[in-house]
Design a protein around this nucleic acid. Sequence first.
DNA 1: CAGAATCCCGTTGGATACTG
DNA 2: CAGTATCCAACGGGATTCTG
Lengths: 133, 133
Amino acid sequence: MSADSLREHLQSLPETDPELDRLVTQIIGRVADKWTMLLIEILTEQGECRFGELGRACEGISQKMLTQTLRAMERDGLVTRTVHPVVPPKVVYALTELGLGLSEAFCGVWTWAERNREKIEQARAEFLARQEG
Amino acid sequence: MSADSLREHLQSLPETDPELDRLVTQIIGRVADKWTMLLIEILTEQGECRFGELGRACEGISQKMLTQTLRAMERDGLVTRTVHPVVPPKVVYALTELGLGLSEAFCGVWTWAERNREKIEQARAEFLARQEG
DNA sequence: CAGAATCCCGTTGGATACTG
DNA sequence: CAGTATCCAACGGGATTCTG
């Protein structure tokens, strides 16, 4: 896709209304979050997961942030939370249709990151050299 | 795209190496940021922009965060920063090829947010009702 | 105009301990 | 196991001031 056609495409989107634009912007702000994106990717790859599984798969996340992020995702309709009344407790999280849609949409960013990892590292090295030199 | 085919697609990506996976994850973390995404969208729609233009277009951003985000984007090779030696100073920012690629990749998320805005708001309302009831 | 520098406060988020 | 509750440090980020 060329720069021009991409621009045209973006401009063609129906957010001429500033009010609407604000709402969409807010959604992006809410959803363009590191943990949310990682959890969505894990749930897409692994299918439904238990709380602990997610914690282990999502490297570096604290249990507090895991709970918090999952709650927000549930609130926004991205995942379902199913409690199985057994001992010990078993709670299963799964992507909703909405969540799956976001996963598909974000898939492009993930692919982009992989494909351009080296370019980014190179750019960082050059930037650093420019600063020092 | 079905859930299964999306899963297959993600699993087919060459990040079996955990080290590589960490790097990509870090890039996602760096780039999945509200201001970065908004600035990329603005630069895509408007083409090259001056510092002040970006500040005005990116509603709610402080000058500090604008500078900071633009620096990080420049460091990662997403934008170029061109200084025109005139008085008053004129500095122009533009997307690089790399930045344009990210813009394209993220375009899907933007479209998703617009298309599903109502569903998200509905999900929030239902979640709220469930909590209260 | 395009920042750099400083101050300062609120929120984020980690660590830890506790519970059904 | 799947959380909740509490405390606290670190960082994000706004407001303001100053400069080339």
